[in-house]
Design a protein around this nucleic acid. Structure first.
Length: 127
DNA sequence: TCGTTGACTATTT
DNA sequence: GAAATAGCCAACG
């Protein structure tokens, strides 16, 4: 199992409602364990959503999915949703989910990082 | 095993 | 300021 991936999911799951994190920030929280590109990979590797439960060995495992992981709260450094380059994902979905949590988009569909960035992430994940 | 690719970022033109 | 370049790391063929 990809431990670093689970770490990414752990962080993403801990993002409070109405807050967002950037790939680079998550990479910083991992302290070199994974690069920003690796964070993107971790989110890309998320199952569609119904892959919860057990593995082949029959043991219950924490399988993260797009339902249990708020992937929509992860954006790039420019404050824009990164689903533009992924046609298989509806970009309106991410915007809709974020707006439902109180995240404000500007006219260019960008997020105000100064207001919505999760600033407490560093202190929360630093032992 | 090697080479390519990507939901990225930071630096340089 | 926008566009190209380099560094990054895990998955896939």
């Amino acid at each position: 199992m990809a431990g670093v991936f689970s770490k990414v999911y752990e962080i993403v799951c801990a993002i409070p409602k109405g807050k967002v994190l950037t790939y680079g920030l998550i990479s910083s929280l991992l302290e070199g364990k994974l690069s920003a590109q690796g964070v993107g990979w971790a989110l890309k590797a998320l199952p569609s959503g119904d892959d919860l439960g057990t593995n082949d060995s029959g043991e219950t495992v924490h399988t993260y999915s797009s339902q249990s992981v708020p992937w929509h709260r992860v954006i790039n450094s420019k404050g824009m949703v990164s689903t533009n380059k992924r046609p298989d994902i509806q970009k309106n979905l991410q915007k809709k989910l974020l707006e439902a949590e109180g995240v404000v988009f500007d006219s260019e569909e960008k997020i105000d990082l100064n207001k919505n960035l999760w600033l407490e992430a560093g202190s929360f994940f630093t032992p």
